[in-house]
């Protein structure tokens, strides 16, 4: 028996992060099992007008290449996706991405809430949501949506965060399943991987 609340076959993992999350993300991507089979969908706050470089920076140490999807690109198993600069990234019914240039949400574009909420809508119980360090409350509402729809929720242990506003905002508005340090999130993903392969 796993100590995590796995109660279904998951279809995707979404990760949100902002200020102070880069290192954590890098460590997670570096420690992924090479045959990790679920799509990982990341919405991270980033410089709005720097189109290139972030994807590459994250890919350097990652076990899998990180790609910024095009509008209406099919979401594939085993891939790692990153919301592109200056676009919101939604998950659409039919398992594709949809990009948009709508107004900023929580002062952010990409907004973590938008990615999390649309993923929750499409994957409902079959989604794992992870929220890392960050300086604003973007992502909290999205985590609530994941929880409300029966998905599994994880936030980074606030004491380990460079800036803990993001995880603590989520903790305030919804019961979170697991509060974990980066090392434990890595362990969790390994367990999830075994669970997925069963």
């Amino acid at each position: 028996m796993s100590r995590y609340k796995f109660n279904t076959q998951y279809k995707a993992v979404v990760i949100g992060g902002s200020a102070g999350s880069f290192q954590g993300i890098t460590r997670i991507l570096q420690a992924l099992p090479s045959d990790f089979d679920l799509p990982i969908i990341m919405a991270l706050h980033r410089l709005k007008h720097v189109r290139n470089g972030f994807e590459e920076a994250l890919s350097i140490k990652s076990v899998k290449p990180v790609t910024e999807p095009f509008d209406k690109e099919q979401i594939k198993r085993g891939k790692v996706y990153l919301a592109p600069a200056n676009y919101h990234m939604s998950v659409e019914l039919g398992n594709t991405f949809a990009l948009s240039t709508e107004e900023m949400v929580n002062n952010s574009r990409p907004s973590i809430d938008i990615t999390l909420e649309t993923a929750a809508y499409v994957y409902s119980t079959k989604l794992v949501g992870i929220l890392l360090s960050g300086a604003n409350k973007d992502g909290a509402w999205g985590m609530k949506k994941i929880k409300d729809r029966g998905g599994l929720t994880i936030v980074q242990e606030p004491s380990e965060c460079m800036i803990d506003t993001m995880p603590t905002s989520a903790l305030k508005i919804t019961p979170i399943d697991h509060i974990l340090k980066i090392d434990q999130i890595i362990e969790f993903l390994n367990e999830l991987h075994k669970h997925t392969k069963q």
């Binding site: 209406k72 939604s90 659409e92 949809a98 948009s100 709508e102 938008i114 649309t118 809508y121």
Partner: peptide, 9 residues
């Protein structure tokens, strides 16, 4: 129209 953004609008 794409559903996710239409719904948000």
């Amino acid at each position: 129209y794409a559903m996710s953004s239409f719904k948000r609008r």
